[in-house]
Amino acid sequence: MGLKFLEPDDKISYLHESLTPDDHGGLPDHDFYQKGKNPAILVIDMQRAYTSPEPKPWVREVSPGIQELVNQAIENTNTLIETARSLKVPVIYTGTRYLPDGSDCGIRREKFPKLGEYMREGLPWVDIDERLAPKYGEPIIWKKVASGFFGTYMVPILTHRNIDTCIVVGTATSGCVRAVTVDAVSANFRTVVAEECVTDRNIWAHKATLFDIWRYIATVAPLADITSWLKQLKN
């Protein structure tokens, strides 16, 4: 198996095209998400703390040019969200947020003191990036750990909307996106990550996680495939 997909310009979504017949033997079905009838978009942690270009008191860019990757992910996510809204596909947001006194941070505050300090209700950093603000009726699920499913009302919210498929976008690929993806598929929702709509502060971690999701967690698909599937499904 070549490692060409580690290049910034190459996509994990197209990895199977470069495989030899031998490589192909054990490959999973990458289109299983298209068996779903009622998808929802999960927009993960697109909060000012993680995506806005303004200087933050604690975040350092790990990979050069990372803000560009973030901006592209936001633009691509908007394309997906607008398609979803026009087709009446539900859009659900998650965000990391602690109580104003930080009394619900727990162990995570010990590992990431700044996170527990800045990601509190009432501080500007927890707001969803204004470039993709939720519309009225699109819930934000506030969470305290990586997965949007852990200790939250996510499953009942999906059940109430009869959702069978989760399309996951947002940040960070190797952190909260990955955790949400594991829990979504573990809860028996067909799950796909839209490759151009996720981002990470570390490009290598981004690629490694996309590979894992593609290979054994859920699946990864290009944005264009997902939008054309949505249009076909709902028209």
Binding site: D101, D104, K143, G151, Y153, P156
Partner: peptide, 25 residues
């Protein structure tokens, strides 16, 4: 200050909330 409020949507304070991790903590 320091006494958390666990906001919930259903009857039980445990259902779909972070209450268990907070008690463990």
């Amino acid at each position: 200050d320091g006494e958390p409020i666990v906001w919930k949507q259903a009857s039980s304070g445990f259902f779909g909330t972070h209450l268990t991790p907070m008690l463990i903590d």
